[in-house]
Amino acid sequence: MSDHSSPSRPPPSAAQPSVTETYELSVNGRARSVPDAWIGESLLYVLRERLGLPGAKNACEQGECGSCSLYVDGVLLNSCCVLAADAVDADIRTVEGLGDGGHLTDVQQAFLDAGAVQCGFCIPGLIVTVHDLLDRVPDPDELQVREAISGNLCRCTGYGRILQAVEDVKLARLADPEGSS
């Protein structure tokens, strides 16, 4: 059954699509080996299916939903639009790498407190996107927040509780700049 705690999944057995490549990725500060991967695999696929990191979600495969958002060299990207084999020597940070020693980040906690989570499929991507926004723009107005998360589709919430969560983190960080994570 699903076991995401295992550090790495065994490569699928012998048969592989013809054009393969072996490379190494740096994910959440750790070097991860990717042996014999088909050249066309996205970073999203490699993280999820080869490296046991399913936090980035696959909902559209075309950069329209933001569910697979993560950082590559500090830049917010859709990992479905990143060729994994081209992400070597980049610093990849996923939602799994946001927390600090098992503690929730302020954004994660605010999503829970505001009731922003329903089915939750879009939530890991949104968490990364909101971190990116508030780290760059500490005091966004509502329209800026809406634009910043406009690439993260959510079908359950109508965004209301998500906007509330962003506002809560913003105010908390402005009130206590040292306390933010």
Binding site: V19, I39, G40, S42, E61, Q62, G63, N78, C80, C81, V82, L83, A85, D86
Partner: peptide, 21 residues
């Protein structure tokens, strides 16, 4: 940037044999 090329791969419109990044 990958925003077109990767979509073409995902939607089976392109099967890369060699990529220049």
């Amino acid at each position: 940037g990958g925003t077109d090329a990767m979509v073409e791969i995902s939607f089976d419109h392109r099967r890369p044999e060699h990529v220049v990044a």
